[in-house]
Design a protein around this nucleic acid. Structure first.
Lengths: 215, 215, 215, 215
DNA sequence: TATGAATGAGGTTTCATTCAT
DNA sequence: GATGAATGAAACCTCATTCAT
């Protein structure tokens, strides 16, 4: 067969359903997305979800896994760090990765959208997500902070600072509907994302200094 | 009969339904809450919602209005400020009010829970909420910041800082399911809330200083 | 009390409801008209129908009586006949009265509209209507025809001719929705009504002659 | 097993529902017929209507199409005409076809019953019906008349005569409840239908002659 | 491996009627 | 004589799931 003739990469039914489900769950949430519309979007039979995934909930679980993998590989938290990064480098890179995951209009943006919905109406999937996706990033940020503040800060103080930093980033995920309503439809320009990331890094650096001096 | 024995202050059906709806919408969101369960909780007939409010959506609208009023009067943003407040006073009070709204286990906590759900799956109600509730608090924080930074900072920089501060607070609303999963069920102790508020104020003060010096 | 001061002729609630019901039943039929909208139109309480008339069906019965009385007195079947009318005079006057009842845009037109709906979905009211309103007019037309054809025509033949003539008139009642769809909204001009009536009279005269000669 | 023994020709659920709907809509009209009773009559699940037809209204639309097809093929308007028909032949055949559609007790009679109900409470379906079913038959009768009267009669006069003839036939559709009440239950004997058709043809011939001479 | 017809549970809404006042 | 809050029955529709093929 002539390899130059590109066969359309005939995705399996299962893959088509999973992909469609990712998009639709991210857009509408678990409850509002219907099995019928997912199958229609996937050009699959209405029984495909139950056949391939068992039920709607198990499909949702799979979707999570899929979406997280894409987001984490497309925008790794430590991506692009120099050899010997300063604290501000770390903060900036972290914020930049999170914000890119949030503002991405394609597949890589689905994880954040799912997360937003899940926080509002948690399902069983959240436990796994928390463990596999959120806790590690939380811990990474903890390490960054700990190194800056030095060892004699207690765990509680550390926790609070982590929340401060992560909260600033996450806010752009959760306030999406407001932003859409105020400044119109996305997408967000690359340079704007960068400006936000730098601002968060600078602001957080100042915050951490204040906390450090305070002691 | 002894008049001193308080007869139960027979709430009207309308009030009972509204109250039950507040609680259930806050807990489950618009879509997952059913008219039937609301009416049952209110010990009212299933037709009560349509009789008193027209339909489920209009009830939801009324619920928002109700919940916001309670939250805003119970925990006003500028509550408890001294005569001539420092910037840190303002930040602390603001964070404290928002956090109390978030962690309140009673009626005053419903607004935050509704908001969290609405951000995940916006309904028509969000437009009104944004205008009546969120925009004003946004503006208030803007004024606080502007006074500190001085007049020569541009609107964009101001906006970013607002988001930094509000984001730190709001994070505790949106991450609720995680917190519940990690450190068990709420409630949050008053002193803990205060510690978080102080931390956010201090951290944000540092952040603002950094931004200011940066120029 | 000064009789010159015209009190507004305060219709009783009962009368207001009856009047509103006439209009609304005529417009929508028994099933589609709701008690609520009738009461609202009558500016009466929603319980007014049950209070004054027992239930919706009894109100409907009363409406029929009311509407027929108005139609029959406003457009009597033998109205305007000369002293010694010809057969064509009789046919013309009959058709004219029926058509006016059909095309009337006010109260006098409600009877025809009710009749149209009742024929499609008969209720118990129809029996009474048939006896009190339709049978007499049927009989009147029978007499007119009998006089023209002479006594030696049998009852069956008579019946058929009656139907021919009445059918031509009634058609304009039952085909109303089509007319509205084709030539736009009513009303029908007086001269147009007259042209139709004259046509029916002339056509029917020819028909009767043919039947008569046929023998 | 003997293959000559006809297994019951297992109608599909869709067909059973459509058939039951035809019968019940014809009997009760759109509003009074319930999805539940249609499905019960079809021995189908209550969700069958929505599954196969979308909703009640789309089912109604399909019912119309179905009923008209049956009526029009069973009793075509020009059925049984001789090679070179006289005007009276045409009138007789037309009346006969319409009357058979009206008096038919089986499937072929449903179209007329639906039409009667639709005229009383028009739905969106009427527009289509008018265009596809009623307008063509109207036009056919127009051509018949035009040929008899000759070309110098104006459109208005033609229209009136059409109504006269169609009205006589249609009357037997719309006055059904009265007939049932007066002479008891249907059915109408074939010879009686024929007598009515001949009477209408003869009567109308006389009417047309009168109009023609009049000029 | 995959289909699609069919189902049943459950949701919102409408509406005539009732009842205490 | 009149009200309006409240009710319960019943309607239409949605949707995840099942089952025979």
């Amino acid at each position: 067969m002539n390899v130059l003739i590109m066969e359309k990469p005939k995705q399996s039914t299962r893959e088509r359903v999973l992909d469609a489900a990712c998009a639709i769950f991210a857009e509408k949430g678990f409850r509002d997305a219907t099995v019928a519309e997912i199958c229609e979007a996937a050009e699959a039979n209405i029984a495909a979800v139950n056949y391939h995934f068992g039920d709607k909930e198990k499909l949702y679980d799979e979707v999570w896994r899929h979406a997280f993998t894409i987001a984490a590989t497309t925008y790794p938290l430590e991506g692009g760090l120099p050899e010997e990064p300063t604290i501000e480098d770390c903060l900036y890179r972290f914020a930049s990765a999170i914000l890119h995951r949030i503002f991405s209009e394609d597949e890589a943006g689905r994880f954040a959208k799912l997360l937003c919905r899940e926080m509002a109406s948690p399902t069983l999937a959240l436990d796994r997500i928390a463990k596999e996706a959120l806790f590690p990033q939380n811990q990474y940020m903890g390490n960054v902070i700990k190194e800056f503040l030095g060892g004699d800060f207690n765990e509680q103080q550390l926790q609070l600072c982590k929340h401060n930093i992560i909260g600033q980033c996450a806010f752009y995920n959760f306030s999406r509907p407001l932003r859409v309503r105020m400044i119109g439809k996305e997408p967000m320009a690359e340079e704007e994302i960068d400006r936000i990331a730098r601002n968060i890094a600078r602001f957080s650096l100042g915050g951490l200094k204040e906390i450090k001096n305070d002691e």
